[in-house]
């Protein structure tokens, strides 16, 4: 079986970001909060990517940011995925009124701005990486749940489910044997998309002081901070932007690749 080149490219991109995150734990060019580098030094020389307006080394801050981006991305997808798929499965299998109730709650949750949700979470806990992950994950779970519900309903309408039931298969087994295998490829692609959105959402939360507190610099915060000096020192905005694109594209390519591998009809035609 041949893997597609896009799948391999995706793996390389994601591995790249992960490698940066791991390296940042062991070695950094400078302390990311050290302001002794001189303000807005252009790239090259001692600072490969230059410094920001407070004199901090951009490369070091980017490397630390990779850790945060991956934590927020995968963390909120984990929270949103687990909550969303569970709620979606429940709604998909539920009797009419329970389904209606869950759907109504989901609609309200989706209508709720992520920002407001984040403020509520921060009010209960406090501004931290964990709060950001929780808030973004919660907002995501509603969207994931709605998609899961539709996918589950579509699978349950198929005759092979009835056939399975009439041969005495229990509902939990129907879920693991037929429902999940038929819905996860679509879910996975959606979750990959959500991961990119989560990293961006964290940026806005950080900007408003609802994300992980300084000096932890997420890519989103770097982007926001570089806003004012984008014309004079464009590297400050370009570098985190490029890394963000690398991560989001990488994750999406990997998810597409997994979907294709899981689909017997596509496997044959390749």
């Amino acid at each position: 079986m041949k893997r597609s080149p896009t799948f391999l490219i995706g793996c390389v991109l994601v591995a790249l970001v992960c490698a940066v995150a791991v390296v940042s734990l062991l070695w950094l060019p400078y302390d990311p909060s050290d302001t002794s580098g001189g303000r807005l030094v252009p790239p090259g020389g001692a600072h490969w990517l230059g410094t920001d307006k407070l004199g901090r080394d951009l490369l070091s801050r980017l490397m630390v940011g990779a850790r945060i981006a991956l934590t927020v991305g995968f963390g909120s997808v984990l929270v949103g995925g687990v909550l969303g798929v569970t709620a979606g499965l429940l709604a998909g299998f539920a009797t009419r009124w329970l389904d209606d109730t869950i759907s109504a709650v989901l609609d309200i949750l989706i209508a709720f701005p992520t920002l407001l949700l984040a403020m509520l979470v921060v009010a209960v806990r406090q501004a931290s990486l964990g709060s950001a992950v929780l808030a973004i994950g919660l907002a995501m779970s509603a969207i994931v749940a709605r998609l899961t519900r539709v996918l589950v309903k579509r699978v349950l309408a198929q005759d092979y489910i009835t056939a399975s039931r009439t041969s005495g298969t229990s509902w939990p087994r129907v879920v693991t044997e037929h429902v999940l295998p038929n819905i996860w490829p679509t879910l996975l692609v959606n979750l990959a998309l959500q991961l990119g959105l989560a990293v961006l959402a964290e940026a806005s939360l950080s900007y408003l002081g609802l994300g992980p507190p300084p000096p932890n610099a997420s890519w989103g915060r770097l982007l926001q901070e570089a806003q004012a000096t984008v014309l004079t020192a464009p590297t400050g905005a370009i570098a985190p932007g490029v890394l963000l694109v690398v991560l989001v594209v990488g994750v999406n390519l990997v998810a597409d690749g997994f979907r294709d591998l899981a689909d017997p009809t596509r496997r044959r035609s390749r």
């Binding site: 092979y160 399975s164 229990s170 038929n182 689909d263």
Partner: peptide, 20 residues
Amino acid sequence: SSLDPRQRVGRIVSEPLRSL
């Protein structure tokens, strides 16, 4: 619609045996 597209025929046909 009566055969699960993601299972091999062997698994589909043996489902009643396994479930029962």
